[in-house]
Design a protein around this nucleic acid. Structure first.
Lengths: 140, 140
DNA sequence: AGCACACTATCAAAGCTTTGATATCTATAC
DNA sequence: GTATAGATATCAAAGCTTTGATAGTGTGCT
C-alpha cells in the first residue's frame, strides 16, 4: 500500500491524456462530433470502404464500441454503409459529403492543438518523449 | 488536414494511457473492482468521511460521474454514506470492512504494475518523462 | 466434400463520463 | 433579516467502452 506518488508515473500519463482529450473534445465539438467519431471519420477518410471490424482495430477499440460510433454517425448522415459484393457478411463504409465536411472542420481545429503541442518541444525532445513513452508502454 | 503522424505526439500519450488502463483494469478486477472504483476507494481511504463532490475533484471527474461510481460501491457494500451533522446537504462517505479488504487486494495488484513501470526507468529518466509530460499538459 | 478456424456483424448487460437542469442548504454581504 | 453567491446532491439524456454470447460467411486443410 506504500508507494510514493512521485514514483507513480501512471498519474502523469493519465493527466496528460485527460487534458489532451478535453481539449480535443472541445475542438471537434464545433463540428458536432465527439472524439471517437472524429477518429473514425479520419481513419475512414484514409481507407474508404473499410469494414467496421478493421476500423475498430485501426482506432484501437473493440468492434462493439465502433459499432455504436458508426450507428451514431449513420444516424447523423455522415457515413453510409452498403453490403459488400462477395463478402456478404461485410459492410462497406463510406463518408458522405456531409461527413467529409464535418471531418474537414473538425480536423482544422484538432490540428491546431497537435501543432501547439508539437511546437512546445524541440525535435530532440519529441524523440525523447516518444522513446520514453514507448518504454513505458513496453514495461506494462 | 496534413500533419505527419510522427509529429502527432497525442497518439503516443493516448496509447500509453490506454495500455496502462488495460493493465490496471485487469489488476483490480481480481478484487471485483473497476479502475474508477479503485481510485475512489483509494482516495476515500486517505480522506475518511469526505463528501462525494470533494471525492470527485480528487479523482478528476465530475460529481455526476462520481455519484454513479459511489452508487455501485454502495450496492456492493464497500462503502456507507450517512448524513453529516450540521451540513444537512452533505453526505459523509466511509469505507466498510469489505471495502477496506477489496482495496487492499486491488492495491496489491496495482502497485505491482506501477513498480514494474518505475523500475523500467532510471531516476533521471523518470524525472525527464515527468518534465516533458508536464510541458505537454501545459502546452494544451 | 466436409470440417475446423477465423472473421464479420450484432444483441444484451454493465459501467463510466459528460452536459444540462433542479432543489436544498450554508455562508457571506448588505 | 434578507439576498446573493457557493456548495451539495441528484435526475435525465446522450454517448463511449467493455465482456459475453449468437449467427452467418469465407478460407484452407484433410
Amino acid at each position: 500500500m506504500d508507494m510514493p506518488p512521485e514514483e507513480r508515473l501512471g498519474l502523469d500519463v493519465k493527466r496528460a491524456e485527460q487534458r489532451l482529450m478535453a481539449a480535443k473534445h472541445a475542438a471537434v465539438k464545433i463540428a458536432g462530433l465527439t472524439v471517437p467519431q472524429y477518429a473514425a471519420l479520419l481513419a475512414l477518410d484514409a481507407s474508404p470502404g473499410i469494414s467496421a471490424a478493421a476500423l475498430a482495430r485501426e482506432c484501437l477499440v473493440t468492434p462493439q464500441a465502433m459499432n455504436v460510433v458508426l450507428k451514431n454517425l449513420l444516424e447523423h448522415g455522415l457515413i453510409e454503409r452498403s453490403p459488400h459484393q462477395w463478402h456478404r457478411t461485410m459492410l462497406e463504409t463510406h463518408l458522405t459529403d456531409a461527413g467529409r465536411e464535418a471531418l474537414r472542420v473538425a480536423d482544422e481545429a484538432a490540428v491546431i492543438i497537435e501543432r501547439r503541442i508539437a511546437d512546445a518541444f524541440t525535435p530532440e525532445e519529441r524523440a525523447t518523449l516518444r522513446t520514453l513513452l514507448a518504454r513505458f508502454t513496453a514495461a506494462i
